[in-house]
Amino acid sequence: MKTSEELLVIKDLHTGFRIKDTYFDAVDGVSLTLRKNEILAIVGESGCGKSTLATSIIGLHDHNKTRVQGEILFKNKNLAKLGEDEFNDVRGIDIGMIFQDPLSALNPLMRIGEQIEEGLIYHTKLTKEQRVNRVFELLTQVGIPNPQRVARQFPHQLSGGMRQRVIIAIAISCKPQIIIADEPTTALDVTIQAQILDLLKDLQAETGSGIILITHDLGVVAEVADRVAVMYAGQIIEEAPVEELFNNPKHPYTRSLFNSIPQMNSDGKKLNVIEGIVPSLLKLPRQGCRFSPRISWIPESAHEKDPVLHEVAPNHFVRCTCYKEFYFKGEEGGRA
C-alpha cells in the first residue's frame, strides 16, 4: 500500500436531508482519509449513502434542505462549513466530479467544447485562444480522436463512452487534486467500462491526484482500487486495503457482498443468507446496530451496544466484534 500525504480527512461526517422539518442523516458518522496517489473505493448497496457522501464533499447538495455536520478537512479548510457560493472556489479547481449517466450530465444545448471550456473561464486566467487549445489538449488526453471536430459537436452526437470521456475531461480541466467518480461506469457497456477505468488509472498516475471511486461493482474495485470502504446504512462497516479486504473480509455484510457464502446447503434447504434491503432513511434504527435486523438468527448477546470500528489487522477496520460470533447457518463452525 502506498503511503503518502493526506489530501482529504473526513471526521465524523453527518449529512441529513430535511423531510418535514426533521433532518434524517443519510451519512451518519463517516470518518475517512484520502491520500495523494490513491484510489479509494466506496462500495455498498443502493441507498446506503455513497452519493450523499460524495455530494457533501463537493458541496453539490441542496444547501437549503441539507445539513452537513462534522469535518471535511481539505487544505486547512472545513468544507462542511462552506455555503453554495463559497464552494465555487473549490468545485472544479480542487475537486472534480465524474457522474454516472454521461448523457444527462451534459447540457444538450451546448457544444462539447463550450462545456469543457466553461470551468476554465471561471477558474483560470487563460485567454480565449489558450482555453480553446486547452480544450483540444484535454480531449486528446482523455483519448478522443479528432478533438477539433468533437469540440464543435453536441452531446447527442457522441456515443456513451465518448460522452463519459468528455465528462472526465471536464472534471480534470483545472487539474484538481481530488476526483470523485460516482459510478462512472455503471451506465456503460462492459468493454467501454474497462477503457474508462484504464483512463482513470492512467490519469491518476499522471497527475498524482486522489480519486474517490463510488461503485457497487466489486470487479471494478478489484481492478483499480487501492483501498476500499464498505458502507452500510450511512456508516462505514469495514475498511481495508484492497487485497486485505478481498482475502480476508470480516464483516458479515462485506462477506455477503463478496457472495463468498453458499446459497444452498447440501440437502437443498435454503440457508440464512442476508436478505432484505437497506432500510429507508426514515426507518433507519438510529441506535445500536443497523445491521442486526438482517441477521436475526444471531443471538442478542452477540451484538455490541454501540458498535465502533476496530482495527483487526494493519489498516483493516471492522465495525463491531460480531464477525467473531457471526456465522451463516451451515457455514464452517456455525452453530445451528
Binding site: G96, F99, N107, M110
Partner: peptide, 29 residues
Amino acid sequence: SMDYVRTARAKGVPANKVYSKHIFRNSLL
C-alpha cells in the same frame, strides 16, 4: 435538479451563470 445543472455546479460555475447559461436556455425551449 437536472444532471447537467449539477455538472455545471460541479465545475464551479457561479449560480447566476448556472441559471443564465444552463437552466434558462433549456427551460425556454
